[in-house]
Nucleic acid binder design. Structure first.
Lengths: 195, 195, 195, 195
DNA sequence: GATGAATGAGCCTTCATTCAT
DNA sequence: CATGAATGAAGGCTCATTCAT
């Protein structure tokens, strides 16, 4: 498996840097190769084509993303706690990887529909995981018994995605992680607030 | 101003149809011209360049969007009512313009960062309008006094945008407008539900 | 029809010159365009792709070839006369178009199998025409009654093609047309000669 | 000399198979290596470059070709018999090596002009041998005293080459060897036939 | 105002060959 | 002897924009 070779990750990391610095449409394969310190042709020993680099990039990073989130959530009891930890760590990972944040929140979305559809497949695991937490919250009686978990999941993901994107578009000037408690509270209690 | 000429809108409508049917990256200027029944060069009598068509498209449609939303909200008293009407009509307008929905929710997002930044400027008026309603809700005591209206606005827009995008990606198979009450309730009361 | 435009033939003629001077594999589309005095992209207004230029080249020239041969043969009575005129004019046309001769006898044969198969389709009309003359010769009693016209046609074409190719490979140093009587006599009477 | 090593012939035979099965332009050095069961780099221990493989292939097979033809001709007395045996065995060897036939009649001709020129040098020995037989036929009084042996040789080779190529292009569907008597008779007596 | 033929810059991918192991 | 990972040059084609008519 080529994925075990160090050059595989070397190329993906070079792609993240190159896309973050130059933008999606200004990222030629030759630029990625240069950033990785290898020849253009070497890319094709590890990836089928340019699109394959981008999908692999997303898969690798998202797998890592989900793994980390699952880790921190593992010890938590309540659904509310899990949701808070998920949001905070979602924001934290993006904050700790500013270039990756630019790539996933802005640049990769400019890809063509086929690539985006494949990216969405990768994303699906994360969305399913979110919905799973919501369902557990309903079952435990912690959340409203009539909660539409599908819509709630779209609200949750739409919210953190929008907030993360706004943060990236504002040059990551403020502390994203610090917003987590506010966001979590809003999602749980709504605009109306405390009972 | 060229905007008064009939061909101006003829080109914009042709762009919506062409982009919806072919996708953003498969939409060449020549295809728009053909759809509009004019020569390629004629496009440049009404628009500075290709990007100008897309921005104008978004501006025209978004202006119309906001105007309609404001109309239906005009008579409403409470912020909760206004928010519900906003969501419902946001969904309704997209439902009534399936091709425009495809263009704004999917295709236009593939544009380059510069174009998206300019689209966001157009969107800003809508976002400001949303935040205005939220602030009124706080001031009237209807919403939580400590509501962070900026974050709440991002939550609201992120939610309806995510739900609309999911609907489009699912080929608009189900009734989007019917989701409005559920969405509004979720935003107001959160996952926890009734007090 | 684009074929009526002067630029269509301008490009084909530029292709003949470029291929003859540089060889098949050293002929880039940009070189043809330069030779034709037009922009690279203009080529694609008249031809689907590079292969299309080469097939069209062959079709145009071969149609012209067959037409000329048929003209000079029209007035001839005996099959022997027709065959002699065919050979002589085949050689004459090649002699009068030295660059075209290089292209058809040497360069175009380096093309890939698909292109060569399509070239053979064009050639088929010429081969059928040859066989037709042979059949007439048999029917009129001029040729041996048991003549296998299919094999005889392959002998005739194989012979003139080999002689023409040898002439081109020898830099067209000698008079090809002058060989026609010898070749015709050989084909009619064989190695054994006069009866 | 590397030619004595078993791997030398192993590579040549792998080249014949690979080219016959994939076509000239689809035959990469790596494919030949794979077919031979060795590493890419090993090829270069036995051959200077890719072209060298193809020329060596042709040389080896052609030497074998000529040797076999000479053997069967050795015992024949008349030039006519020799020519018949040559044609029949030329066809027989091709029939017995269908893949080699594809390679020599079709694929190798797609090579560039330089390679084809070097292949022609190898072919020259065969052509000289043919012309030698023709000269002997003239000297013995068997053939016409004024026979132009150079042209006659081009006729002979052009004919059998065209017939062999047509047979390969028709997927070797019919019996090539069975055509030998007809071809020989045609070459000796021409279209006019019996005296 | 309207046309549409012409322009030409820009990039992903292949594959023969090398060379460190 | 043998390996196979790495190299890097090279080109067909698209399409936004112009401008002579």
């Amino acid at each position: 498996m080529r994925r075990n070779k160090p050059k595989y990750h070397q190329i993906i990391d070079a792609a993240v840097i190159t896309i973050a610095e130059n933008g999606y449409h200004q990222t030629q394969v030759s630029k990625i190769a240069k950033q990785a310190g290898i020849a253009d042709g070497t890319i094709y020993l590890y990836f089928k084509n340019k699109e394959d680099i981008l999908i692999s990039l997303f898969q690798e990073k998202m797998a890592n993303f989900i793994e980390k989130i699952k880790e921190v959530i593992a010890g938590k009891q309540t659904a509310a706690e899990k949701i808070f930890m998920m949001i905070e760590n979602h924001f934290r990972i993006l904050s700790q990887n500013p270039k990756l944040a630019v790539v996933t929140q802005l640049e990769l979305r400019q890809s063509n529909q086929e690539l985006r559809r494949r990216i969405n497949n990768v994303l699906k695991e994360y969305l399913d995981f979110i919905e799973q937490i919501l369902r557990e919250g309903v079952e435990s009686g912690e959340f409203a018994p009539d909660l539409d978990t599908r819509i709630a999941r779209q609200m949750l993901f739409g919210t953190i995605d929008e907030i993360a994107t706004t943060w990236v578009m504002n040059k990551q000037k403020y502390d994203l992680v610090a917003l987590a408690p506010t966001v979590a509270k809003l999602l749980l209690k709504g605009f109306l607030g405390e009972k």
